[in-house]
Structures are given as C-alpha cells and as structure tokens.
C-alpha cells in the first residue's frame, strides 16, 4: 500500500537521527534531500551527541584479536550484562593494533615496525569504514591519545614524550610540538577521551589535555586515594571515571570515582566490598537502568557484579 500522508522534513530528521550509521549511509541513496540531511555536519554532530548520551551507550569495547592467519577487530557490546562480540571483518590492511578511541574513531598503529624509525598510523571509523593514514615523524613515543575539538571540528592525535608532547591535527594535516615544563613518567597507557578532554595516567599522576587550547595540566587524584594506591582510568556514561582495585588482604574491593563535569573534583561513585579474588581486568558499564561491573578473574571466567 502506498503511504500518502508524507512526513514533513523535520520529523524525517528526528527519525533519521535514531538510525545506526550503516542504515544512514545506505539511505543516502533514497533521494538527494535525504543525502543532504545525512551529509550535513550538524546532523552528524547531533547524531554523535545522541549516541554518546543514550542510556544504552555502554562505551563499547574494541579488542584486537590475535590470530596467526588473520587479524581483525571485534567490537564487544555489553548488553544485559553479557558480552556480545560483533566482528568487524573489514579493517585497514596491515598489522594493526588499537591504541585508543574517541567518538567512535580508533587510532591504530602498524605494529609491523617501520624501517626508518617512523610509525604508520591509521585513524579508522568502523561505523563508516573511513580510513585516514599518516606518519609519526618523531618515533618511539609511548603514550598516545585521540581527542576531538568541537570548535574547529578537528580530530587531534597527541603523543606524549618525557618532557614534550606533539599534536597532529587532521584539519591542518600537520604536527605541532609543545615543550612541557614538567616531566611525566610514561607508562605506555593510552589516553581516555571523556567529557571533551583527554586524560592520561602516568605512574601515580594524571594529566588533562584540552583539545581546544592544546594545553596540558596536572589533575588531582581523589583525596581518599593514598600516594601509592594503584588505579586505572576509564569512561562511564561519557564521563571520566577512576577505579582502584584494592588488593590488600583485609580490604579487598573495588572503589570507583567519577570526575565532576565542569570541575576537577571527584565524586565517590561506588565501593564494592568483598570482591572474592583479584580481578585481572575490570570493565565498568551502564545499561538503561543499572550499572554493572564486569570483573575478569581469569580469561576463561568472568563474573558480573550489578549495582542498581
């Protein structure tokens, strides 16, 4: 049956904003006006913001699969407290490892090793399958980060060295090096993009990089954390979270803090007592109504803790 009561453009746009990227790219073929709506950068930005703010946004995990014959990436979705692997079959060629993620875009590095001490990097958007390649002329860097500047609509790659950092801007297609007055101990972890900024963890310190000003500043830890408590950074509902996994015999547990949105203060979020054994990895996720924590105790065994 033909449908005669045509929907006005503003309602079509509301519906299109709720579609996944794959459907949107296909529906560019529907007609020129749909192509125009879907290709509009403002539409793209609202679509991204909606996805980031959706209660179903689990901060999906990407994991590099190691295989002898082929390498691919799997997107793990946490739904209803279970891990679902959604294999992305087409990935950029080469021996790629995932360094970090920002707004659904992954920063990959060719791990096969360059002959002249330069690394090949790839920015890859698995939702649109767009790829952008570039070189790091500095080589042998340890800490990476990927962030997005909404003012200039620019993705920036930041590589940290001991007393300086370099920024690659996708818009200008060039690197800028910035000297840093204090030095940080690189430990090889990638930055976490949350709340519009990029956060790094160095041995027992943290730093925040602002993609709008390109400035790096030290970030305080929650007061309750001791000087030598080990902790990790993650993202929870788009906000920076910090979790500490106590391994002491008398107080084994996981404590989580969330950084306040517009200040550098930490809010104690949850503390879980009596975690049975030491998890080797902890993932925190949220679905519509509860917050869950997946603790991996052994690779073959995962246990879920639910906090409603």
């Amino acid at each position: 049956m033909e449908y005669s009561n045509n929907l006005p453009p503003e309602i079509i746009e509301i519906v299109l904003l709720k579609l996944p990227v794959k459907s949107l790219l296909r529906f560019k073929t529907v007609c020129t006006s749909w192509n125009t709506i879907i290709s509009d950068p403002v539409f793209t930005r609202i679509h991204l913001e909606n996805s980031n703010n959706s209660p179903n946004n689990n901060d999906n995990l990407f994991i590099t699969e190691k295989g002898d014959t082929e390498r691919g990436f799997s997107l793990f979705k946490l739904e209803g407290g279970k891990l679902h692997a959604d294999r992305v079959s087409e990935n950029p060629s080469g021996n790629m490892v995932i360094l970090c993620e920002c707004n659904g875009v992954l920063l990959l590095r060719d791990s096969s090793g360059g002959v002249n001490n330069t690394s090949n990097y790839v920015l890859w958007n698995p939702s649109t399958r767009r790829v952008r390649c570039f070189n790091d002329p500095y080589g042998s860097t340890v800490n990476y980060g990927l962030c997005y500047d909404p003012i200039t609509d620019d993705f920036k790659v930041v590589v940290m060295k001991r007393s300086s950092y370099s920024i690659f801007s996708c818009n200008s297609d060039s690197w800028t090096e910035v000297e840093e007055s204090r030095s940080y101990d690189s430990v090889g972890w990638s930055g976490v993009f949350a709340d519009g900024a990029l956060y790094w963890l160095f041995c027992f310190e943290m730093a925040r990089f602002d993609p709008e000003t390109d400035e790096l500043e030290a970030l305080r830890k929650p007061e309750q954390l001791g000087d030598y408590d080990e902790f990790s950074l993650g993202r929870l509902r788009g906000r920076l979270c910090l979790y500490c996994n106590n391994t002491g015999d008398d107080e084994r547990g996981i404590r989580i803090w969330i950084k306040e949105k517009n200040s550098n203060d930490w809010e104690a979020f949850v503390a879980i007592e009596n975690v049975p054994t030491d998890p080797i990895a902890v993932w925190i996720y949220v679905d519509s109504f509860r917050i869950g924590i997946v603790c991996v105790f052994q690779l073959s065994r995962q246990r879920r803790l639910l906090v409603t």
Binding site: N6, P20, T29, C31
Partner: peptide, 19 residues
C-alpha cells in the same frame, strides 16, 4: 527501517527518486 532496502523506504515514505 533499520534493515530495510532503499526501495522499501521510498515506497513507505512516498519519496520519488530524484537521482
């Protein structure tokens, strides 16, 4: 709509293909 074809969308939304 998510998994539907372009043709289905054109029919249901009453859209003429102007490409």
């Amino acid at each position: 709509m998510e998994k539907k074809s372009v043709g289905w969308v054109r029919r249901k939304f009453g859209i003429e293909n102007d490409y």
